[in-house]
């Protein structure tokens, strides 16, 4: 790779420009991927924490928790190892004026979901109008022992503990007991969540079983939001492909006479192609590394209201994706190199 490295060191400005372009697009890609992940987490984090496999909802609910109402008979005919979920969206206020839109989730303290809940501070107690709340409340100034006043109701929920990653449809969750939620939703069970997938014979008529991943896709706005991000991310990958192709193509065309002479002098086409691939690899790696570093710094410095999550798996996938695009982008210049006829360059 002697030739490739020497050329890049000698043509610093040209190759730096390509690195800058790759960095800019990669940075945008990392930020967008981080936002997509962050927003997706806001929608589904609580569901992921449940660590469940399936959910049974009313057949007419279109997979939406809020639209699903299960009758007592339907609930009774389901296996009793599921967690009955009652949900109610509302506004809660603290006694000192803090406000938060929230999802109240009623469940039994003996249910597998509640047992799985992690606590970052406080205790895991939902008896007697107590609630375990998302740690978003904590970051917004709520404290253990505070009372949440539920809008349009006389219900007061005492915060006993904070739980991490507890957001549902972008709202923080307050886990309370079925008795506590009863006055708000008239004791309706919206869904029953199971650790394992149920056999179809066990699903009562009028209900429908969804896998958790399907249920997440049906969360209001979730799929539209993720598709929009996916579209933008895919488009940025295409931009990287085009940028690399154009730059390397122009650079290759400019040096075709030299390549022709090198071929005449016994330099193999394979060597020249590998040199170009190596250059493409190096510039994309440099661009990606700078983008990752700045992406991480950006994620740290952005206010917590911006739901950005730059995790390792995203960085690895994005980094590999950009490098693959860069290598694909080198294919057009490679074709030029393969086609160079030293005879024509020498002037026959």
């Amino acid at each position: 790779m002697f030739l490739a490295i020497k050329e890049m060191l000698h043509e610093k400005l040209r190759y730096s420009l390509i690195v800058v372009l790759i960095f800019l697009v990669s940075y945008l890609l990392i930020i967008l991927t981080g936002l997509a992940t962050g927003l997706a987490n806001l929608n589904k984090a609580a569901i992921n924490e449940w660590d469940a496999s399936s959910i049974v909802l009313n057949s007419d609910s279109e997979g939406r928790l809020q639209q699903s109402f299960l009758s007592q008979d339907e609930v009774a005919s389901l296996p009793n190892n599921g967690t009955r979920i009652s949900q109610y969206s509302t506004l809660v206020k603290s006694e000192n004026g803090l406000k938060e839109n929230t999802q109240l989730v009623g469940l039994d303290s003996k249910s597998f979901i509640f047992k799985k809940l992690k606590i970052t501070s406080g205790s895991k107690n939902i008896r007697n109008n107590a609630g375990v709340v998302s740690d978003k409340f904590k970051s917004d100034g709520f404290k253990i022992g505070d009372h949440l006043l539920v809008a349009n109701s006389s219900l007061r929920i005492k915060i006993t503990g904070f739980t991490p990653r507890a957001t549902l449809s972008a709202l923080p969750v307050v886990y309370i007991s079925p008795d506590t939620i009863q006055p708000l939703n008239k004791g309706v069970t919206n869904a029953v969540v199971f650790k394992n997938k149920l056999k179809n014979s066990k699903i009562p008529k009028g209900t429908n079983q969804l896998s958790i991943s399907s249920f997440i896709k049906k969360l209001p706005g979730y799929s539209a939001q993720q598709l929009t991000f996916d579209f933008m991310i895919a488009f940025l990958y295409i931009i990287i492909l085009i940028v690399i192709s154009i730059f390397l193509y122009i650079l290759t065309v400019q040096k075709l006479p030299n390549l022709g002479v090198l071929k005449a002098q016994g330099v193999s086409t394979q060597y020249l192609i590998l040199s170009t691939l190596f250059q493409s690899f190096i510039i994309s790696v440099i661009g990606v590394i700078i983008a990752i570093i700045l992406g991480e710094i950006t994620a740290i410095t952005l206010p917590s209201e911006v739901p950005i999550v730059i995790d390792k798996s995203n960085i690895i996938v994005t980094g590999i994706g950009i490098i693959i695009m860069s290598l694909l982008g080198a294919l057009i210049p490679i074709r030029q190199i393969a086609k160079v006829d030293p005879y024509k360059i020498i002037g026959g």
């Binding site: 030739l3 020497k6 050329e7 000698h10 043509e11 040096k255 006479p257 030299n258 022709g260 002479v261 090198l262 005449a264 002098q265 360059i345 020498i346 002037g347």
Partner: peptide, 13 residues
């Protein structure tokens, strides 16, 4: 060994 009228040498070496 080839000696040519132009482009003989690699410009960045």
């Amino acid at each position: 060994g080839f000696v040519l009228q132009s482009y003989n040498l690699v410009p960045f070496l």
